[in-house]
Nucleic acid binder design. Structure first.
Lengths: 200, 200
DNA sequence: CATTGACTAGACCGACCGGTCAACTATACT
DNA sequence: AGTATAGTTGACCGGTCGGTCTAGTCAATG
């Protein structure tokens, strides 16, 4: 059955790394193939085009993101609002680690791709939007639980969740512009204070 | 003296538009020249390279940004905190207008460039960072005035200003991912509630 | 009128891009 | 054993990229 060793996954992983550490346009298929030790023909056996690779990378990363980073950060065992501290911490350490290795803060792959590609490819844009929406749900359920436990006064959980996600992405963007992961630590705490009231 | 008509500025403006509506990598020099009705030779007479054009575009836009959008939004005649409402409004209408014309929300040119290029070109990154810092100052002076007038309890004006800027950029990013400028309207009001306390 | 120098014109260049293809190999099933 | 099929190889393609270069225009100077 499993005749394919792991070529496809190897392409996927190295492409993800390269896209994340650089950007989409600057990374050529040749470069991905060399890094993954795969020939071009093999690449096109698994992916019809670079664009389809991008779609696959987004899905692949979204899975890891959901089951790794997000899952850990939104640990159900923790009191709801504490999860947000945990999230900020996780974001910081991740960016810090990447910077220590590469010398530059890569930022959020999804955010990067949104700003680079969503004006030119609507399908990609929609896919990235869906990833954000899935993440937003984790914020929202956290907020709902915080409201239920009385840790938070009632508010518009949907919009507030979006606002928090926006703030997270914005912090990462600003930190990337300064190549200073520490900015996430400094600005992070304010995420808990963001509120959008229920309308009427 | 001024023998040059406006060729340089025409290149600059069309490059800015094209970079903003698309992205840096996708726009070739040929395309800029065609749109600006300029020949390649002329282009390279004014700009040594595409990268130098990018630098010039950032400066050019930063000036307009400072004297236009930011200047209007941070109108000194308005009560400090009201300026933030004005800013959100301005951001929304700008993105909305662009979407109505192009069909797609372009986002913030500076934010776009940061995420696309700051991992590969540190000088560009620094330049963009400086633009953000200049904008941050307008937030900060607004906050200081709000504290002075008693509209706001004392807080860390520097970090809060950065947090607000991050939130603004994050909103725009999220809105772009959904191609919905309206998101800025919905999330915008929360910007006034962002606070980072003075440490110790 | 000659010279200068900023500016324009556009053919041209090598490099590299995403993508194709025909030939080949290794495995799986009959 | 025979054959289909999944996977691999790497030469190859047309097009476009950023950038170069030579020839020439034109207005201001002497």
């Amino acid at each position: 059955m499993n005749s394919t060793p792991d070529t496809r996954q190897r392409i996927l992983s190295t492409a993800r790394e390269l896209f994340h550490a650089n950007n989409y346009a600057d990374i050529g298929i040749k470069q991905i193939c060399d890094a993954a030790q795969v020939q071009k023909g093999s690449f096109y056996h698994f992916f019809p085009s670079k664009r389809d690779l991008a779609l696959a990378v987004i899905e692949d990363m979204a899975d890891d993101w959901a089951h790794g980073f997000v899952h850990e950060a939104f640990d159900q065992a923790l009191p709801p609002m504490e999860r947000l501290d945990y999230l900020i911490d996780a974001a910081y350490y991740w960016q810090k680690a990447a910077k220590d290795i590469e010398g530059r803060m890569p930022g959020c792959l999804f955010g990067n791709l949104v700003l680079e590609l969503s004006t030119r490819d609507d399908v990609l844009r929609a896919k990235l939007s869906a990833v954000f929406d899935k993440t937003r749900l984790r914020f929202e359920e956290t907020l709902q639980q915080a409201v239920e436990t009385g840790a938070l006064a009632p508010l518009d959980t949907n919009l507030t969740a979006q606002a928090m996600l926006a703030y997270l992405e914005g912090m990462i963007l600003l930190a990337k512009s300064r190549n200073e992961p520490e900015l996430i630590q400094h600005l992070g705490p304010a995420i808990k204070g963001i509120r959008i009231e229920l309308s009427h």
